[in-house]
Design a protein around this nucleic acid. Sequence first.
DNA 1: GAGTGGTCTAGACCACGAC
DNA 2: TCGTGGTCTAGACCACTCG
Lengths: 233, 233
Amino acid sequence: MTGMDVNTWRGVHDEVLRRIRERVWKPGELIPVEAELAETFGCARNTVNRALRALADSGVLERKRKSGTRVALHPVGKAVIEVPLIRREIEGQGKRYGYSLLDSGVRPATPEAAFALGLARDCELMQVRAIHLGDGAPEIFEDRWINLAAAPGAATVDFTLVSANAWLLENVPVSRGEMSISAVHCPMAEVSLLGADFTTPHLAVQRVTWNGEAPVTCVRLLYRKDHRILSQF
Amino acid sequence: MTGMDVNTWRGVHDEVLRRIRERVWKPGELIPVEAELAETFGCARNTVNRALRALADSGVLERKRKSGTRVALHPVGKAVIEVPLIRREIEGQGKRYGYSLLDSGVRPATPEAAFALGLARDCELMQVRAIHLGDGAPEIFEDRWINLAAAPGAATVDFTLVSANAWLLENVPVSRGEMSISAVHCPMAEVSLLGADFTTPHLAVQRVTWNGEAPVTCVRLLYRKDHRILSQF
DNA sequence: GAGTGGTCTAGACCACGAC
DNA sequence: TCGTGGTCTAGACCACTCG
């Protein structure tokens, strides 16, 4: 009838979602307990649990022990942005990937980099600046600082052959990260690299990653003019 | 020893993750089948399944029936951006929320709006333009088009009292959406509203949402100068 | 055809948290 | 205290897909 048996977790998921959408269960309201729903739908409580858990993950339901399960008052949409290898990001647009190292070396960190990584103001880090190309044209300018204490191998890598992005991803485990998206002017220094002009707005993304408590790397990506970040939810 | 029993799904999850990080199981390699891991860890196959499923969701593992489970070659990071009610977004920054309707009415859609919604070029839509304030200062300029066919009630709502954002969220179910983030100049028309100047770069977010196959609304949000979108992964 | 993950079940115990 | 979701178990059948 509804296209899916109600005794599978997906079936229960869809049926519960339908009842929420059609206001059978209204925002803020408690819905029946798992055991009752299991009986209603003629399935095991485990099955109901998995369905409700999925709905809670997606923000439609709020669950608390003892209190029960209620329909979220203000469902919070969650847009997932995939953060792939830069090479794949460019190839995913159907373009031929190119990479060029600008310069690299161990030097005193800028205050901004040290702060982002939560390290001492006067620490020494490895900086790698590079440009990523799509079909030969500049796509992304990369300015990266690497904490050698967390990624010792980086000191001896030849970043003209492998991008820091690829090398780190394959050689240094990461447990968590933060991302910040902003709109900026193309700094004078990078204007010629990106083939832009000083007044054009660009998307900038800053990513900081940690391995446990140790900060690994902080990278600032400056995208080509007109680049958009897309996502679905 | 490791801080968590290995016979819970979280325990298995962490232990598998550890083995991947420490290269016990290398990128691209097959890991043992569920039944074998269950025996190894002294737990039920269900428990292992849940742990591996979570790791597959987060992009660390790739699973296929018959083939087995392998460590992802290029783990794709997934950054989750929460898309709350605009009011909550502003209050979440510790600011007092304010809202002001600029104008609204049913009119022929702009070509861009019609295209974004996948509707006929000459369709009539309801437009709502408003400004969202934080501590009395402009935070977000909102330019929205509503498909009255998908949200009939919208025609009679007084948007000076309720923001379109809040009304839609509470009254029109949404099954999926798309989001696009870009960097733009503040258009001349909105310069004074946001208290910005013409040359400053701003973050712009366009969101389109559907209910099933029916397009519901398309909104363009222009953020205050210096606004950043944050996310964790 | 056969191996692997995907899922369901019926039952059980536990942990949180409202009262 | 005790109701509710969170989880584990042992077993079973199914669906996909590789060879």
